[in-house]
Amino acid sequence: MYKNFDELASDVLALAKEILPDKLIYINSLNDKQQIILKLSDTNTSILVTEGMVINLNETLCNRIDFERNEPLIYEDISRETCLNGLKRTLADVNINAYLGIPISLFDGERFGTLCVAHHEASHFDKKSVEMLQRIARMFSYYLDLERLAYRDSLTGLYNRQYLYKYFEDFSVTEGVLFFLDLDGFKKVNDVYGHETGDLVLKEVSLRLQKFVKEPNDDAFAVRLGGDEFIINLPRISSTEEISQRAEQLINYLNTWDTEYQLSASIGIVPYSANGGVQLNTLLKNADNALYRAKAAGKNNYKIFNGYC
């Protein structure tokens, strides 16, 4: 496995550059509203796009790609196109006059994004080059699926225990904090409403956790350990005031439900220092001790490990 997405994307782009060495090649992710440029083959280029650039999806050529048919989209001379009047000015502003977009979809049909080729001058994309780039896109999507199987929880889509251990083993850890949370009242949901409803609750909890971790920084992530136990890793958070603020926010995220069953969360919290040499197993044990104290104190609250509990 690659250590991170950048490493994988760099290899994909290097292979693509062997096919079209004089073109700018880049990888995008797409959601319902935006296109995000994730990785460029070149940073010193006459085309004015940058890594991390976010573009309104309606203002992109990638939005015109047919993902259902999995077909590439090709414009060899945008200046001569009559069907792009709404986009010509935008493309001219970033100095793109030739475009090739190849869809990247996951095994289940979910749209991931695109592998794109751009040039400032009109260019011909021969059939063999396009087919080779399609093969590279398929290899890339296959790896993304493998990574999902290895490091994602199959029910919720959150990271799993294996990813959590890999993260602490492979990366230089900055200071941060782990939240170990357990759902209050979840057993009753399963007993009264059945496991199918319980699975729906876990999926909804996971969506709320994903929303929660997006707010502080891009390095934060959520993990499902199993059952109704979850871990949240929040790097670069160390002050007690900030930890408490985030914990209270998380409790509010998880104790409001429109249905008749009552759910909340108890949280055990353990801070960790940068490169402190503390093993993840020790952190989890300490967080579990703090979680036990939160449960014993009446649930729907949090406790911070202080070295004694």
Rank of each mutant, 00 (worst) to 15 (best):
K17E: 14
L24A: 04
Y26K: 06
N28C: 14
S41K: 09
L48M: 04
E51M: 04
M53Y: 07
M53L: 12
N56Y: 08
N58K: 15
T60I: 09
I65C: 15
N70T: 08
K88T: 11
R89F: 10
R89P: 03
L91N: 10
A92I: 07
A92W: 07
E110N: 13
F112Y: 14
F112I: 04
F112N: 03
L115P: 08
L115A: 10
V117K: 08
H124N: 05
V130F: 12
V130A: 11
V130I: 15
R135V: 11
R135I: 14
S141Q: 06
L146K: 07
L155S: 10
G176L: 01
F180D: 00
K187L: 06
T197N: 13
V201N: 01
L202C: 02
L207D: 07
L207N: 10
R208I: 02
K214P: 01
D218S: 11
A220S: 14
F221N: 02
G226S: 11
N233E: 05
N255M: 07
T256C: 09
D258L: 09
Y261V: 04
S264G: 15
I269E: 00
Q279H: 13
T282M: 08
L284Y: 04
N286P: 02
L291Q: 01
K295F: 01
A297F: 05
G298C: 04
Y302V: 00
N306P: 01
